[in-house]
Nucleic acid binder design. Sequence first.
RNA 1: GUGGGUAUAGCUCAGUUGGUUAGAGCAUCGGAUUGUGGUUCCGGGGGUCGAGGGUUCGAAUCCCUUUACCCACC
Length: 376
Amino acid sequence: MFELKKQQGGARLGTYTTTHGEIQTPVFMNVGTQGAIKGALSAEDLSTVGAQVLLCNTYHLHLRPGEETIHSLGGLHSFTTWDGPILTDSGGFQVFSLAKLRNIKEEGVTFNAHTDGHRLFMGPEESMKIQWALGSDIAMAFDECVENPAPYEYVEASINRTYRWLKRCDEAMQQLKSREDTVNPQQVLWGINQGGTYAALRERHMKMIAELDLPGYSIGGLSVGEPAEVMYEMIDAVAPHMPKNKPRYLMGVGTPENIIEAVARGIDFFDCVMPARNARHGHVFTSKGIININNAKYISDSAPLDENCDCPACRRFSRAYIRHLLKAGEMLGMRLLVMHNLYFYNKLMADIRAAIAEDRFDSFRREKTQVFSQRI
RNA sequence: GUGGGUAUAGCUCAGUUGGUUAGAGCAUCGGAUUGUGGUUCCGGGGGUCGAGGGUUCGAAUCCCUUUACCCACC
């Protein structure tokens, strides 16, 4: 399923094949938590911004409209009309980030829904059942994302539990896929590495889950408040123990600089809410650095957001117009900004792939990490 | 013309029996955001309290004069 085509230093160029199409890696997965990218983007717009993969969320879609509804309508691909690859997150992170009162036990987690506060339970079997019903191409394991910082003893106990949960996820998925009403028989399960900011625990846990021989592995629980350097150290600790011929996914990351640095350390898959969320607040990624379109200096700026960008917003509209739309609360302002930022991220990944293919990733890395991080 | 009312930040308004450096919301300006609760969070700037005079240790607050606007009546 995953073909590693080339390596330059730590950076990898590959192709991951699903029944809904090939994914060229390194890749950025576009986050559409509730089945759509926030900012009024449709499945059609996903193609426009160069998206290869859509990421949806088990927990949110379970709350509404419910996985049974989506299953009865033929699964997420049919429901959203996005015919490309879809990855579903397991809900593990949402339990950690959204739920206030959560009670973690061996069976799973009891917590309060963020929508109306009702008590609900989710464990490995529940998460797999939902993701199976949704019919995503890649299902993520139900894991525990521990807080940062967390005591060593707690994290150690947690990775053991997350390992047991992973085995239960694997078994549940095998059983479910034998059912006649399976929407996506080719659905696969990826495992998630945890271990907080303890390199030794990260490494130990990675070795444990690698033995299960799953078709993909991810690193979770990072970019939750720790410095970027610590995150890079954790990747360096884990990556050497990830199977070489399988995709590697760094969950929830990150800034353009974070992504370039992680690619250099051997990561193939990324996802992050940052381009979309920041866009909604006027924070724009450009080829020359970061701008805040809310700033007064753009009030009569006739230039596009990024003169080197070919996205629908930049091809046609001025900074002044988009700033006005955002200030005036017109939905189009948000939509154009989200489209631009996602186009930028997907283009960034295409540029990274080209750089690796042409043996110039090192210079690309040196040149771009600085530029993309600066404010202009 | 007569009577009544109002006047405090760009806007809408609080402001206790007169008592620290006159506040809020919105607007404005800037920042934050990392496996997304879609208008969020944090911070900054901005006032001759309509004007002038008086009382008082001290006035946005009390008194007088005046100006503008609003309402009612003639």
